[in-house]
Every structure is written in C-alpha cells, then in structure tokens.
Write a protein that binds this DNA or RNA. Structure first.
Lengths: 355, 355
DNA sequence: CTGAAAGCGCTAACAC
DNA sequence: GTGTTAGCGCTTTCAG
C-alpha cells in the first residue's frame, strides 16, 4: 500500500486533463454530461478518454457528490426462491434508476442482521431494502429506528411503523382469510393448516390469524389438531402429514390442506400421493413459487404479489429522492392462482366469492 | 448539494478527534484496531464514538486504502435457482473474508453484460465473479480480457483462457458422458436428450458432446430424433415430449430421458405422467436443484457441485490477495444424486460403474 | 465556456 | 504512542 505515488492504478482525471490540455473541471464536466462544454472540447476530451482507457472512479465521484448510488438489500437467504424473486425484481428496478445493489444474505440471527445494517450504513448506501418480515424483531427494533435516521428503509412484505421507514406488503392475513372462505364455499370445511412459525414471526402469526378468522367467519369451529406447526422442509412435512393421515380415522379428518409456504404444501402433497387410497384432498400453497409448477398435480397457490410490490417500492424510493411525499405504508391484496390441486369453479357452484 | 459545509451528514473523523482531544490519526488507529494505541486512549476514543453514534465512512476509508473490499458478482438471472444458489454460496464465502457483494443481474444481452462489467470497474471492485457460461462469448471476449487487466475475474462454471482470469467449474461434459454410460449399463439404451441450446452456448455444447460421446463409448448409434432442442420452460417441454410420445410407435422410441436442466426434466416427467399407459421411463435432470425434490417421483439429477466450486473460488481469491499463486483453472467432477426416477442399483445388476 | 482551488472523510508516511 | 500532513480522485463553487 505504498502511498504518494500513482500510476499503477491507471490514469486519473488529472492525467486526462493534462493530456487534453484542459482543466480537471472540464474533464469532470465531460464525464458527467454537463452541457456547458463546447462540442469541440467535449469530443476532444472524450477521444483522449477513449484512447487511454480511462475509467473514472465511481467512489471518488460519489464521495464528492455525497451519494454512492448504491442501495443495500438484505434477505435471510437468496437460495430461497421467494427471496431470490424479490431480489431479482428489486435489482432490476433499482438499476433502471441508476442504483447498484449491495447484497447481504444475513440469515436469521439478530447479530448478523444488525451487522449488515451497520455495514450498509458505513457504506453510506442511499437506501436499505429489507425483504421479509424476518427483519421486524418482535421485541426491540431500535437498530432499525436508528438506521432509518441515516437512510430511508423499505420493508418488503412486512410492516413496522417507524420514522423514515416505508412498508409495502401484501395483506397475507386477508389472503389466508379469503382462501379459507373459498375452500369452505367449495365444500371443504375441514382444513389442515400447515405453517412454520419459528422464524418470520410476524408474517407467520398474521397468516395464522387469517386462518382462524376465516374459519370463524364461516361459522366453523377450529380444531386444534388441524393446526400444525412444522419445520420448513419437504420431507419433514411429508412425514408429519403421513402420520396424521395414518390416524385419520381415529379423530380429526380433513379434506383440504392450506400451507403457509409452497414447500410445505408440496411435502403434504407427497404424503397424500403416497397413500394407497385415492383421496380427494384439495391443497393450496403460498407464495406461488416456481415449485408450485413442478409438482404434479400442479399446486394452486396464493400469490403474494411480489411482482407488484417490488416495482412499487422502487418507485417510491425514486419519488422520495425527487422530494415527493410518499406513503409510509402501502398494502396490496393477494391473488389465488388456481392450478390442479384446487379450483374454485370445479369445486363449487359459486363462480365468484362474495365477501 | 451544498458544499463547504458539513454536519448535516453526521460527524466525521475530525470531529471525533476534536471531541476526544486526540488526532485523527489516533482515531483512525482505533477504528482499525491498530494495536499501537494505549488501552486508555482507545477506550476513551471508543466511548466518544459510541456516544456520538459516529459511523466511519467505508468509502472514504477504502478510498484512502485503495481497496473497497467489494467484489462484483454477475449472473444472468437470480430468480433462477441455479444462480441463486451460486450467489448464496459466493456471498457467504466472500463475507467471511470481509468482502461485500455488488450484484448485477445482467440478462443475456451482450451490451448489458458489458455495461455491468464497466460499472464494476468504475466501482473499483476487488474482483469480479461471473456465474455461468453465459459470460463467455462465442466470438469476442476482448472486454473480459481488458477488464481482467484491472481486476481479477473468476468464472464460475465456465472456462476461458485469459490472463488474470480464473475458472473453476464442473466438467459437465464428463458428467453427461458418465450418466449416459450409467443409463446404458442399466439397460436404458434409447435415451431422449433434452437441452436448451440458445443461450449459454458453451455449457450447452459441452453437455451435448458428452451425450454423443457417451453413446459412442457404449457403441450405440445416435438417433437424431432423440436429440431435442427445447425452449426453457416446464410447459413447452411438456408439450414437446407429449407430442413425441404420441408418435412413439411410428419411429423413434426411448426408455430414458436425460435433460440438461432440471426444469426440462420436470416438463418431460409431466408429459410421461399424463400418459394413460404406465410407462417405465427413467428420467435424469441436471443441476440437482430444489425443483428435483418437488416433483413426484423425485427426480434423479446430476449435481454440478456448486457447493464445492463456489467456496473453492472464494478461497482462490483469498490466496490471490495474499500473494500466493493460484491455478488459473480447476475442474471438479459431477456427482449423480439418485432419487426415484432412476437408480443405478435398482436398474442394473452392476453396483459400480466401471470406466 | 473554462480554470483554480477548496474540499469530501480517511489513511499512512514520517517526525517527535 | 501520538500528531502532522500530504495525498486518494473527483466535484463544485467562484472568478474570469
């Protein structure tokens, strides 16, 4: 790290200025497309830049300008299709507005989540996106509050009320609520509800509440045996459901399965498919991921609208930077994507579900 | 963008120095855990930092140090599980070495791929990772060569020979070759090969070559009808295979399917499953993605070893920075993950495949 | 339209 | 051990 010497790292703006016989200010103007430069001068400088393969240093530039044109995105795990999808949508949107994306896969440990936010603050990112409700801590969100004092924070699919944080999410409680009603309208009244609670507490409890209230709204008494907390994973769910199916006759029975995640639904489906007897059980997943397309019969799934949420959040960021006022909370409704494991029309004679 | 004034952006190192009654150098030392500072002074400064919520500017720091501790990662599409997986593995590895990850999802257009590389160069990233063979252009890789003059480039699962670029990949040709041999040993001699050629030309042709050579090695004459170029997508493949199955009797027949991607294999599986007659067709996918677990029967798939490739590449980067010599090319062998759609033991009486 | 010069926040010689 | 100070490469006022 020898100092006081340069050149090994390529040319800088000063070199280009010298080579073009203009000042650094002019070169800077050319680089930044500042109109107040003669066409002649501009082309001159440009050609010097070309010929010398000059690559302006974006950080020095952002450093001077006090904006790095970078936003940080946090998710617990990109290898999970849901986050990968959200990330993909956000990244594309942000790039269109000229922002680069700094990615942090934090896992679910609080210290790591905090660490990522601190690092992002040190990087002086222009904004932070938090994907999923894993970033809304149950107890103490002080670190979010503090971070938001430095830079705007966007929650994707989670809600929390804090200054300078903006939440855009899908109403998953309502989504489950409606889905339950649709199942019931189709004559499916005994619904096994599968969810993985341990993480993402907030979203999990929202969905569960939707299930319970949905049943209540239909005048159905909830059966505790039909609410199953499972570990995330196809096989664990498969085993669990297989066991439940085995003692079906003994007590609780069900003719529908609603899961808080496609993976769980698929695990359940495998359990059902492996039964000897040909059971007619409707299954509905959640997230409408690619996985829902891979299983056979293809999984009907609740779409939590990442396609609309993510671009929306990006737009909001842009408006914010333009100085416009933006809402601190926007919530969109989910959509049921019907595939082979449940169809509204096929299962009932009501073609529309009324509220 | 008012200049010549500060404070609105928070404190800087000079403020902390003043508040602690020491010099900026000392504060810098404290921040960077430089041991040559009295415990007393250190704690003093630290407490001042704490009390004032001072957040050092990582860019100014990297700027001085001439390393941003950032690496750029390019992939064509994070929403694709394969890339998401690779990204996840790389990101984790890099973070352990203190690097942040700048993500670019470039798509497959050359201009966008070039643009991303240029942007990364402007960001002065410490290295660039390119995931997948989509970044190895068929004709002209001049931009890669030039970029590599500025910063080391790592290809993940692709090979190209250029100064300062390092390739770590899985020998997919060999993988397909061996798989064909295993199928044949199991008595499956008529193998429908499904691949999507249009993009990732290099990887695609490698695999195809593996298929052809595999057949040749087994003394089987290749049947052009059994080599199908398809578009990526479950349903398009499903339709294609359904058509082929329909006219099975007319000409070509097959009792095995080998696909260059799990998604294709799953599409084919759906076609097979929907046949009336109970067909015994072995299916093997490629990538060993989560999708392979979702379908029923679960898909046997070739694992191209991202789990070993990615950490390995990260290690190499680290060695490179430590000044050690690293190999410009490391290639690992694939592994066949047996699931329900094909089992070596079940299908043949050879428990081991000999070369 | 162009140039001179003062920063941006931090690092690392070098001197004490 | 600690302080002084000259940069890092670029932006932006302010004069001209």
């Amino acid at each position: 790290m020898t100092y006081h010497k340069r050149g090994e790292k390529g040319l800088n703006i000063r070199d280009i200025a010298a080579l073009s016989g203009v000042s650094v200010a002019t070169v800077s103007r050319v680089i930044n497309n500042n109109p107040s430069v003669t066409v002649k001068t501009r082309e001159m400088v440009l050609s010097v830049i070309q010929q010398n393969d000059y690559v302006p240093n974006a950080f020095a530039s952002g450093f001077g300008r006090n904006s790095m044109k970078i936003v940080g995105i946090l998710c617990t795990d990109v290898a999970n299709l849901y986050y990968a999808n959200a990330l993909s949508l956000l990244e594309h949107g942000l790039r269109r507005y000229g922002f680069d994306t700094l990615l942090y896969c934090t896992g679910t440990l609080l210290t790591d989540k905090k660490g990522a936010i601190t690092a992002l603050l040190q990087r002086r990112v222009d904004a932070i996106f938090l994907i999923g409700s894993a970033y809304r801590e149950e107890r103490d969100n002080q670190h979010i509050r503090e971070a938001a004092q430095q830079t705007p924070i966007f929650f994707i699919n989670a809600y929390i009320q804090l200054p300078n944080v903006y939440c855009v999410y899908c109403d998953e409680k309502e989504a489950i609520f409606n889905t339950v009603k649709q199942l019931v309208s189709a004559g499916i009244k005994d619904i096994l509800y599968l969810h993985d609670m341990q993480k993402w507490a907030w979203a999990g409890s929202q969905k569960l509440a939707g299930y319970k209230e949905g049943l209540a709204a239909c005048g159905i008494k909830e059966n505790p045996d039909l609410i199953q907390v499972v570990d995330y994973g196809i096989n664990t769910v498969r085993n669990r459901v297989t066991k439940i199916l085995a003692k079906l006759d003994e007590g609780s029975k069900f003719n529908g399965i609603l899961a808080s995640e496609d993976v769980l639904a698929i695990g359940a489906q495998k359990a059902v498919l492996s039964q000897k007897k040909n059971m007619d059980i409707s299954i509905i997943g959640f997230n409408n991921s690619q996985l829902a397309l891979c299983c056979t019969p293809a999984l009907t799934s609740v779409d939590n609208m990442l396609d609309t949420i993510c671009p929306m959040a990006v737009n909001m960021l842009n408006q914010l930077f333009k100085g416009e006022k933006i809402s601190s909370k926007v919530v969109v409704s989910a959509t049921l994507v019907e595939r082979e494991t449940f169809r509204i029309d096929k299962n009932s004679h009501v073609s529309k579900i009324e509220d």
